[in-house]
Simulated assay, not measured.
Amino acid sequence: MTSDQGLVHNHINCTLRDQYNYMWFGTESGLSRFDGLQFTNFRYSSNKGIGLSSNPISALFEGPEGQVWIRTSSKMNVYDQKKGVIIQNIDSILHVLNLPIGDPEMIRDFGDHEYAILYRDSSLVLFDSRSKKKSVLYPLKIKK
């Protein structure tokens, strides 16, 4: 797959196959979603709130409720599968999930609706998306 076929950029930093079988490609110039036939591309939007907060994508995660979490060079964004939009300010999403407000750096799905979420401030949250219960380990202590 190349930009000639519709990919937003030829340099791919990360990929994700979500639960709906879309293939996501994070690149230096934005995000591409492939449905098996064609690409839908997403790029930086100066519209605060909707669209990517910056173009370089370093990581993609499938989070609770099937949303795609997009680590841009500036902050985490979320693609809302139900609304079909990328949300820059994810505080409301974090609030609904009963997660701490902040900037998640990465998410790991452990299966059975359990996640580990590492924030930029080094706090680690263990989260059950069914019960919305969380355990916050803050700050993350690393022994030297």
Rank of each mutant, 00 (worst) to 15 (best):
S74C: 06
K134T: 07
I142S: 11
A59T: 02
F42C: 02
V68N: 05
K48P: 05
F61H: 01
K143N: 14
L94F: 08
K143A: 14
S58L: 03
Q88C: 03
K141H: 12
E114T: 12
V8S: 10
M106T: 15
F39N: 08
Q88P: 05
M23F: 13
L31S: 14
V136Q: 13
I50Q: 03
S32R: 06
V8P: 11
R43K: 14
L7H: 15
S32F: 01
H113P: 00
N77A: 04
Q88H: 03
D4P: 00
S32I: 07
S45D: 05
S131I: 15
S131G: 11
L124A: 15
L99P: 00
I90H: 03
I142N: 09
L126E: 11
L31E: 06
E114V: 12
N55K: 08
S46R: 11
L60M: 02
V78Y: 00
S32L: 05
G66D: 04
L97I: 03
S74M: 10
R33K: 12
D112W: 03
L137N: 14
D18P: 09
T72R: 05
S45F: 09
N89W: 03
P139K: 07
R33C: 07
P56V: 02
N55Y: 05
G63C: 02
Y79I: 01
S73K: 13
L52K: 01
W69Q: 04
R120N: 12
Q5K: 13
K83M: 12
M106P: 00
L126K: 12
R33H: 05
K82H: 00
R130V: 13
E105A: 12
N55V: 02
V136Y: 15
Y119H: 08
D91M: 04
L118M: 15
K83L: 14
I86L: 02
I142Y: 09
V78G: 01
I90N: 03
G30H: 04
K132N: 06
S29R: 11
S29F: 14
K48L: 09
R71S: 07
I86D: 01
